[in-house]
Design a protein around this nucleic acid. Structure first.
Lengths: 117, 117
DNA sequence: CTGATTGTTAAGCACATACTTAAGTATTCG
DNA sequence: CGAATACTTAAGTATGTGCTTAACAATCAG
């Protein structure tokens, strides 16, 4: 180790993209919509007062992050959530626990093993 | 409702800040460090090959998002995680489940109620 | 008081982001 | 075929982000 500094790790890049994609309210709203089921670009655009190209750019950010996938059939592009990417971001946050929180976690799981009354 | 468009909701702004703060690898590394316990600005800076002002700017982003808090005592600023903010972001992601995932969730919780064997 | 430590403020720069309008490309419908 | 539909591409613009260096506090230690 000639370099003592903290370097960005592999896997970090994925989180960069995922959290950046999530940092925009329009993109989060699209993700919420897609959790109800697949939708086309126009369907996703409909709730927003924004030009189509603007919408498409947001979709590109979401797709580049891995949070959604899309497939074009004929002239229609169908978009859907990639649950695995959402779960990875959720899990990263799940691991961010202080020692205090971890103690509470262990107490709770201990209590779960005790029969009621 | 004269406006049919989707407007950013209250509470969205908080998530904007939190996810934006999380989108940077340096800031995530700082958060990881702070989950082990409070630290000063210099201690947080030490692993990174970056100027102090750069570090302080990252800390300001983290604090503005609510993910961390800090207090200056004498000439030293002590920083610590705000677990509640981390949990809110985690919970938002936890709610992003497709109908398919929700079915699996229900199956698992049903199996948990069954005695083993 | 003097000087070292710890952090802060200000200014600037390169690059990224979030839009826009205008024009283009497939694909399907009549 | 010709027109409508559903995007796509390109280009431009205003604003934001992630750094930097230089200069400025404020506090503690001798």
């Amino acid at each position: 180790m000639l370099n003592n500094q903290t370097e960005p790790q592999a896997g970090d890049q994925e989180l960069d993209g995922v959290f950046h994609a999530l940092a925009d309210p329009t993109r989060r709203a699209m993700l919420v919509r897609l959790c109800e089921g697949p939708a086309t670009v126009s369907q996703l655009a409909e709730p927003f007062g924004m030009s189509l190209p603007g919408i498409v750019q947001h979709l590109q950010v979401l797709e580049a992050s891995g949070l959604i996938r899309s497939e074009k059939i004929g002239r229609v592009r169908s978009c859907s959530v990639n649950p695995a990417a959402v779960r990875r971001a959720e899990n990263w946050l799940g691991q961010r626990r202080t020692p205090g929180e971890r103690r509470l976690d262990r107490l709770e799981s201990f209590l779960d093993t005790q029969p009621p009354h």
